[in-house]
Simulated scan of single mutants.
Amino acid sequence: MPTRRVHHLAAAIAATTTALTTVLAVLGAAPAHASHSYGSLHVVLPGESIQQAVDAAEPGDTVQLLAGTYPGSVRITTPGLTLRGTGPETVISPAAAPAETVDAATPCAAAGHGLCVAGTDDRPLADVTVEALAVTGFRKNGINATGTTGLTVRATYVHDNGQQGISQEKSTRGVITANESTRNGQSGVFLANSVDSEGGALSTEGTVVSGNRLSDNRIGVTVRRLRDLTIEQNQIHGNCGGVFIVGDEGVPRAGALSVTRNRVEANNRYCPPNPRLDHIQGAGIVLTGAEETTVTENQVRDNVGASPFSGGIVLVHSVVGVANARNTVADNLVLGNGPADVADRDTGTDNSFARNHCAVSEPAGHC
């Protein structure tokens, strides 16, 4: 490699390191896992192929993207890989014309997603990190993960995608933290057992969704048919609905979750009905068909609407009529929501409500 090229890359990497440190400090995120620092570094400049660098990387390597726009989808199948940008100025967006780029031929692009992290049911893809980059403008999901374990998505800016911002299914031990996910067609963060099949809830073995800013989506966070995860300290506002915990008649039931210390405010956009659900507007935290979930120490304010889901913290039976069971709603600050701050519109009789600071409840007595 010519000396000039080496000097150029050294300066660029130094600038990238400084920019990334600043981005992570602003977002309150931890530095990249130390275990990844021992692999090789693959630097990608605008105009070069991210996919080629990812395909050339080995477990433990880092693919470092410099600031700029990178057209085309990217698919990661290498365990222990870190894909890192410099912050929102590193942008992955759709290719202008699929025939013009090899990256557009990936299965990820064919599915309409931006960045795919892809393992299998039999061999989950382990310990991938995606951080400090933007993903925008894709027909379906911005970041789409399936069959992963130990995936970290951190300090990303995922916006204006057609379906989910950050989606994870059939996965365990994930960490989704310090991201901004906005103006996506469905959820800012979407977690599920499977998007295309029925079945009982899967255990995520401790997945954490924390410290994210989720706004102007249909739903801020959707959890569908999962167990054993935590949603904490997120700022969720300006969506049609804030947090939806969704279960049904499948066994095991969805639940054993913690929704705690989130700020869920003014999620008052109007989203029209679809074949499965009534319209959504003014929904703060909604439990439907869930069990053994704790909703504690949240601030839920000014979520107002006239749908079956409207209100601050709402329990309602699932679309197939399954009642919520053995859930706890306690120690929340719930004010200015309508038609009620805390609403139990379900038929279950073993859910508990305690020490909530609120003004109006359905039925009375839950404040």
Rank of each mutant, 00 (worst) to 15 (best):
L9K: 05
A11V: 10
A12W: 01
A14C: 08
T17E: 13
L24M: 14
P31L: 10
A34L: 09
V44S: 12
V54T: 02
D55K: 13
E58W: 05
E58T: 09
T62H: 06
V63K: 14
L65W: 00
A67Y: 02
A67S: 13
G68L: 11
Y70C: 07
P71I: 01
I76H: 07
T78D: 13
G80E: 03
L81W: 08
L83Y: 07
G85W: 12
V91T: 07
I92N: 05
S93C: 07
A95H: 08
E100M: 14
V102Q: 10
L125W: 11
D127I: 13
V128A: 00
V128R: 07
T129K: 07
E131N: 06
E131V: 06
A134R: 08
A134H: 04
R139D: 15
R139H: 12
I143R: 09
T146S: 13
L151M: 08
V153W: 14
T156Y: 05
T156H: 00
H159S: 09
H159A: 13
G165V: 03
G165E: 09
I166R: 08
K170L: 08
K170E: 02
S171Y: 07
T172L: 05
I176R: 05
A178F: 03
T182Q: 02
R183E: 11
N184C: 11
F190Q: 10
L191Y: 02
S194M: 12
G199I: 15
G199M: 05
G200V: 08
S203F: 01
T204N: 12
V209W: 09
R213C: 02
S215C: 10
R218C: 10
L229S: 10
N234Q: 11
Q235M: 13
I236F: 10
G241F: 00
V243Q: 04
I245C: 07
G247D: 03
G250C: 10
T260E: 12
T260F: 11
N268V: 13
R269S: 03
R269E: 11
R269H: 00
C271Y: 05
P275T: 02
L277F: 15
D278R: 14
D278E: 15
Q281W: 05
G284C: 01
I285T: 04
T288C: 00
T288Q: 14
G289E: 03
E292I: 04
N298Y: 10
Q299I: 15
V304T: 13
G305N: 10
A306V: 12
F309E: 04
G312R: 09
L315Q: 04
A325C: 02
R326C: 02
N327R: 10
A330C: 05
A330M: 03
N332T: 04
L333D: 04
L335C: 03
G336S: 04
P339M: 03
D341T: 07
A343H: 06
D346W: 11
D350I: 07
D350W: 02
A354Y: 10
R355D: 14
H357T: 15
V360T: 15
A364C: 07
C367Q: 06
